[in-house]
Structure formats: C-alpha cells, structure tokens
Amino acid sequence: MKAETAKYMLTEGVTNINRNKLMSLASVSIVAATLQVFGIFYICVVNIAANTAVLRDEPEIYMECYPNADAKTLEAVEKYLQQEERIALYEKLTKADAMARLKEILGEKDSSILEGLDESFLPVAYRIKLNDPEDSQNMADDLRKVTGVEIVEFSGDTISFRIRILSWIQAASAIMILILMLNSILIISNTIKITVFARRKEIGIMKHIGATDWFIRWPFLVEGAIIGLLGAIASFFVVTYAYSVIVTRFNTDMQLISSQVFNFISLVKPGQIALKLLLSYVIIGEAIGILGSYISIRKHLVE
C-alpha cells in the first residue's frame, strides 16, 4: 500500500470514530472492561504461580521445637533426624539464626524493639529434605509425635492445593474472557455497522468510481483497530495503577507479619508483569477490534 493511501485510510478511520463518538466510546469501554477482567485473572494466575514456585524451592518439611525445650530433648530430636532413613539431609537453624532472621525482617529501624531480649524465646528449627517427596505426609505425621517438636509444616499439600486452584482460575478466566470477548466483538461490529450504514451512499459512489473492496474496507478496519487499541491502553493504565497500589500495601503488611513460620507470600512487582500485560492487551484489543469490524463489513459491504 502506498504511503498516501495508508494516510488516507488512517484519516478516514479516525473520522469514522469522530462522527460516531458515543458508540465509539461505548465500544472502547467494553473492550477496556473485557481487558480489565482479563488483567485481574492474569495477575491472579501470575501471582499464584510465582508463589507456588517459591514453595517448591523450599525444603519439603519445616519443623520447629518448643522454644523452652531443654538441651536433652533437643539432642534427642536431632538424633532422631540423624537416624531416620527417609531424610536425605537437614539443616539446623539455631536460636541465634532465628534472632538474626528476625532482625533482618524487622530491619534497622524496628529492630530496636528486640533490645533487651535474648534469643531464648525463639525456637530451634530444622529444614528437612527427604529422599522421596512422596513420604512427606507420613514423615510429617511421625515427626509430630517426637517429643519437643511443636510445629511441623510441609509444602506438598500447599503446592498441590495451589496448583488445583490455579487450574480452576485459569479455566474460569478462559471462559469469562471468551464470553466477554464475544460481547466486545458484537458491540464493535454494531458500531462499525452504524458507520457502514451512515456511509452507504459514499460506499456506493466509491464502488462506481472503481474502488477495490479492500480500499473500502480498510478505513473500517482502521476504525476497529483504533477502538481496540484505545481500550487496551485505557485498561492497561487502570489495571497497572490499581495493582501497584495493592502491591505496595500488601507487601508492606506481609513483611510485618511474616516470620519463619509463615511462608512469605509476596506479590509480583507491577514492573515485572507490565510489559507482558501491555503486549497481551494490545494483541487481544486489536484482535477484538479488527474481528468486530471485519464481521460487520463482511456482512454489510457485500452487494
């Protein structure tokens, strides 16, 4: 296509949108709404996946003894671990380690609250890796019975639960997005239909003076593409802004309550997903826009 013709197609597309501001706005809004729902699902999936991956890298079993357990009990616990055949290796986290970690979490500013406290209130803990992850459940059960052991957690349950949730969310989002996309395509095709109708006289004239079908179609496709793009950009800003607000608050709160006991859940930073989100928005937005207008010009341009 020549540069002049391309320029003409763009100008005509923009003119179409301008002539039909209200329907164009409605179309942009519906595309944006669709993409926002998509964005919410997308962010959920990314975050669950990221946090599940973190869990997988963690030791299979995390065990804490009572903080007040005496040396003899602790010795017996450690001996049990040494003798247990199902255990591949374990790492001991002493009370000093726990203190250091606590200080790290609190940071320079807040660590003053630990002044005057010694590490005696903190537990001795173990990170345990098994030879066969399949044994997680019964190993955990056995460990709970050992005297002096207070908490036994293993991530296997959490992982499979999260993977299940993940696949549910993915399936639900796929269906929701499909329905919303169909809606958007329908509304856009309606908008374009109105433009086609408004310009039917012009289209007739164009045909008589030898315009090719594509010459007639392009401005309408451009109109759809612009609507899709505007919807994509609008929802990108709305979703990333809302998400960055949530991330800031959530991660701050989580840092306050997290400890060794809890798996530290952190939300993926907006910067990490922004590019992918924008890219998928533009692709989906354009697909909706172009498909919507193509449907209506196919139907209404044929003599």
Partner: peptide, 13 residues
C-alpha cells in the same frame, strides 16, 4: 469480482 473495480476505472459514470 476482483477485476470489477479495475474495469470501472476505464469508465466515467
């Protein structure tokens, strides 16, 4: 149908 526009360019209507 594809050739029609090019034919019409040889006409004035």
């Amino acid at each position: 149908a594809k050739a029609v526009p090019f034919f019409r360019r040889s006409l004035g209507i």
